[in-house]
Design a protein around this nucleic acid. Sequence first.
DNA 1: GACTCGCGTTAAGAATCGCTTAAGGTCGGC
DNA 2: GCCGACCTTAAGCGATTCTTAACGCGAGTC
Lengths: 222, 222
Amino acid sequence: MPNRILLVEDDVALGQQVVETLSQAGFDPHWLRDGDSAREVDPDGYRLIILDLMLPGTYGMDLLKRYRLKSEVPVLILSARDDTSDKIRGLKLGADDYVTKPFFPEELLARIQACLRRPNLVETRNLAVGAIQIDLERREARTPTGALSLTPVEFEILALLARRKGAAVTRDAIVDAVLDPANEGSRRTLDVHISRLRSKLGDAAAQLETVWGIGYRLADTS
Amino acid sequence: MPNRILLVEDDVALGQQVVETLSQAGFDPHWLRDGDSAREVDPDGYRLIILDLMLPGTYGMDLLKRYRLKSEVPVLILSARDDTSDKIRGLKLGADDYVTKPFFPEELLARIQACLRRPNLVETRNLAVGAIQIDLERREARTPTGALSLTPVEFEILALLARRKGAAVTRDAIVDAVLDPANEGSRRTLDVHISRLRSKLGDAAAQLETVWGIGYRLADTS
DNA sequence: GACTCGCGTTAAGAATCGCTTAAGGTCGGC
DNA sequence: GCCGACCTTAAGCGATTCTTAACGCGAGTC
């Protein structure tokens, strides 16, 4: 759906206002009021995400980090006027722009347009790394041998590594993005998922390299 | 480590004011009034750099990029109040914070303290020193011969030396940065790591020079 | 030149890390 | 309530890496 925009905002008045602004401008806003439901969302389902950093708790930053690990969708953050430290952390975590509250609707729309004009928004639906192909929309991964029947977690891990093609991804980063971060206890679970993922990958398993002491990397050599 | 702070600011009145503020706070400010002299400076000689983006020409961004390539010293940028595009570009180029003009001295000091307290968040992705190339994202080091299979500690040592390309780095500094600081016992462990690193570097081992009585240096002879 | 001190190298043990397998445990569908 | 798919936990094992210790060399000092 081309013009879907996700809005994560707990303030009801502000949320309504933004939703209205977006609708009038021809967008299709989806409004979530709390961080928990926003957590479960697949960011790739939207063209842009508007995120209020001032959610209860540390949800804002957490969500931003999460979205960035999983996807390349542009994220625009809302923050209080004087909270520069949050702006900075936000931008460094990969937000594409920020708007300080309060703001005029026109300003928000202008920023949105600017974000959407960015060049690299093409084709995040499909990822190809070496002999591995991933269709995010169909949630399907393939090798030359055929389609793989992956579990949800396995698919997420593979997709995460594929998005960062060639980069070494920390075990912690994978755990944070894919598994339940609250479960601080055993990080050994990831081992098991990786192991099973490898066995399902067959010949392509060689691409899933271990970076000793760090994490894993999906090599781009076919 | 002394409290030297570099200030790059062409406005005389503002510069004087900042110098005074810094001095009173116990810092040792060095004030340069133009971009050309700031170009020649070794950023690693300072604990922090304050950079006015509004220098004549595009000097501001240029200097920022330059410093970032050479060093990891935190950079704090000064900018006009409403120039958000510059802020964003600056932050993405690796600045650690920004302060909008005009500002109160207390605000500047607070930001400085925050910068000094916070571990550096941004890193350049690639380092090249002579025949040695380091890809921090892939966590991989290469020589013309091919990729090196380094252990985590070896990689960290090499990356550390590469970031300070050409500079002699103290043994203590390396040990503190790379090895377990709690392990007060034997600093001889570093010898072993260096030794193995050299053997893995092959021909490029000549670049890893010993600075007798001090530490090591990664020479930039290419 | 003899001495001290810092450094290079090697080998072996200790510690850490990751892979695998097997056995619960949870959840939703039927 | 049962079954199956899936995630988690636990433990054993192998592999890799870090540290320690010992010996030898070379640089600086007297």
